[in-house]
C-alpha cells in the first residue's frame, strides 16, 4: 500500500432513484474519506474500506421500499463484504434496502401518521461503541433531518426484546416522528459492522446549512474505515 494513501476509500452505491448519493459523497469527502459512487449494476465492489447505501427512492419504492433494490447485482458483493465484517451504513432508503436484504433485523413500514415527515429531529445515541458512533457520547443528542414516508421501524414481540438485550438499537428518537417501535431510529446487526438509520447524517455536516449531528456519525465511520485499513498489522 502506498505511503500517501491515508484517506479510507468509501463506496456509495447508486441505485436508480437514489437521490442522496451526491450529498453522501460530498460529506464523506469533507470528513476525510475518498468517496466514490458505484452503480448498482456492477457485479463487484471496487476495493473499498466501507460501503454506504444512500437515501432516495430506489426503483420508485415499488412493491415495498428497498424490496427490488436488494436484488441489484451489486448487492451480492455488498452482502459478502458485510459478511466478512466490512463496514456498511444504510441511510433512509439504504436502511430499508438492508432490512429487505436481511442484513439488518426488522423492517420499515409506512409512517403511523401516513404523512411524509420532513424536519429536523433529535436522535439519542444509545451506543457510542459502534464503528458509526465513536465520535459521539452515549446519551448524546444529535440533530439531523428526516424525510421519509416509510420510516416506521417494526420488530415483532419476539425480535424486539432480543434487539434490546443485544443492544442493537444504536439510535433512538427523542420524540418519535413516525411510530417506530421503541422509538428506534437506527439499528446495528449482531456483529456491529452494519448500521441502518432513517435520519440523514449526510445532510447535517455543514453549520452553514443547519445542524451538524450527522458529522459525528459519518466522521465515526471514516475513523473506523481508516483504522481498519491503516492500522499497523
Amino acid at each position: 500500500m502506498s505511503e500517501s494513501r491515508t484517506r479510507p476509500r468509501i463506496a456509495v452505491v447508486v441505485f436508480p432513484g437514489s437521490n442522496d448519493d451526491g450529498d453522501a459523497v460530498l460529506a464523506l469527502e469533507r470528513l476525510g474519506a475518498d468517496a466514490f459512487p458505484v452503480w448498482h449494476g456492477e457485479p463487484d465492489l471496487p476495493a473499498a474500506d466501507a460501503v454506504v447505501l444512500p437515501g432516495g427512492f430506489s426503483y420508485g419504492d415499488y412493491l415495498r421500499c428497498g424490496a427490488i433494490a436488494r436484488f441489484a447485482p451489486v448487492m451480492g458483493a455488498v452482502t459478502s463484504f458485510a459478511g466478512e465484517g466490512g463496514l456498511v451504513l444504510g441511510i433512509c432508503n439504504g436502511f430499508q434496502v438492508l432490512c429487505e436484504a436481511g442484513l439488518l433485523p426488522g423492517t420499515l413500514r409506512p409512517n403511523a401518521s401516513l404523512s411524509f415527515v420532513c424536519r429536523d429531529v433529535d436522535v439519542v445515541v444509545e451506543r457510542a461503541d459502534t464503528p458509526f458512533t465513536t465520535r459521539a457520547e452515549q446519551g448524546q443528542c444529535l440533530t439531523m433531518p428526516i424525510k421519509h414516508g416509510e420510516g416506521c421501524y417494526f420488530a415483532d414481540d419476539e425480535l424486539l426484546p432480543e434487539l434490546e438485550a443485544t443492544r442493537q438499537i444504536a439510535l433512538r428518537y427523542a420524540d418519535n416522528p413516525n411510530g417506530s417501535v421503541a422509538d428506534v431510529a437506527g439499528v446495528v446487526n449482531a456483529d456491529g459492522n452494519v448500521l441502518g438509520l432513517m435520519p440523514h447524517p449526510e445532510h447535517a455536516v455543514d453549520p452553514l446549512l443547519g445542524p451538524t449531528g450527522g458529522a459525528l456519525v459519518l466522521g465515526s465511520l471514516v475513523d473506523a474505515a481508516r483504522e481498519r485499513t491503516f492500522a499497523p498489522a
Partner: peptide, 8 residues
C-alpha cells in the same frame, strides 16, 4: 423472496 415480506 419478493412479493411479500414474511415479517409483516
Amino acid at each position: 423472496q419478493l412479493l411479500a415480506n414474511p415479517l409483516i
